[in-house]
Design a binder for these strands. Structure first.
Lengths: 141, 141
DNA sequence: CTTGACCTTCCCATCATGGGAACCCCCATC
DNA sequence: GATGGGGGTTCCCATGATGGGAAGGTCAAG
């Protein structure tokens, strides 16, 4: 199987397959006489493993560890579980951070008239100014 | 004020202040005879604006738009609100994606014994998914 | 005058991914 | 046999936000 076929069979782009090989996530593929990379089912399987792990938000570094455990028959599932739960923690922390940002900003936006007037609590918050009323000239900045 | 003082006064690193200038987010700072950048309160204010917007997850590109609106006395708050709410949508979508990943992985981990035995549903799931191409909604992450 | 803290510019690295150039290979068709 | 097209190959560059660090200039205190 050439790289393009392996790509569509695995859902990983040919570009990324070469990249994974270049960074050592995958062993160097065997080559045909033409120089073309040649893949079999095992390689496609590994690529699907990587794709799935990426979908779950694992970094390539973490995936390297998972691949090693995947290929290690003597592995302890405790190690896999530890990696997975550590990653869950990181994902949940990021999700919480983003949700907090969204909530803050949504609240700010809710206090903004959103009409043609220049007064805008969103910008006032960003600028670090306390909410203030228009001055004598009507300018808020 | 030299760049280091502006940095500690604003909470933005000197490195990033230069970077923001380089990418056009900030106008070129005035220079002393020595070549050192020189900052005043207005610049520190703008830096704090940027830092706060970054804390809320705005990209530098979005911040450029916000800064333009901030400096525009004739702005309509509707435009600011529109930008803010669009950003809230993006943040919430990312948070949802991360939460979904975390939930999937936490569920997988819960089915793993996590002991010395090699059987591991986490690895089995990673290895066993059917091939899937990027869907219409987004990427394969 | 020296020392040390600060500043300058410039290059490189991160992380995962893609774009594109320049060139090679293979197969079908004219 | 020539040609065309759709593979493949390597290599360089870009993204976005941030940091590290080198080589060298500036300034104030001792």
């Amino acid at each position: 199987m050439r790289i393009g076929e392996a790509a569509s069979a695995s859902g990983v782009s040919a570009k990324m397959i070469r990249h994974y090989e270049a960074v050592g996530l995958l062993p160097a593929a065997s080559r045909r006489a033409s120089g073309y990379r040649d893949y079999g089912e095992a390689e496609v399987h590994a690529l699907r493993f990587i794709r799935r792990a990426r979908e779950l938000g694992f970094s390539l570094h973490e995936i390297a560890a998972l691949l090693a455990l995947w290929g290690d028959r003597a592995r302890a599932s405790a190690e896999v579980k530890r990696l997975a739960l550590a990653h869950v923690e990181a994902l949940e922390r990021k999700a919480r951070d983003l949700s907090a940002m969204a909530a803050t900003l949504r609240h700010l936006a809710s206090t903004c008239h959103g009409d043609g007037r220049p007064e805008c609590p969103i910008l006032e918050d960003l600028a670090g100014e306390p909410p203030k009323k228009p001055n004598a000239l009507g300018n808020v900045i």
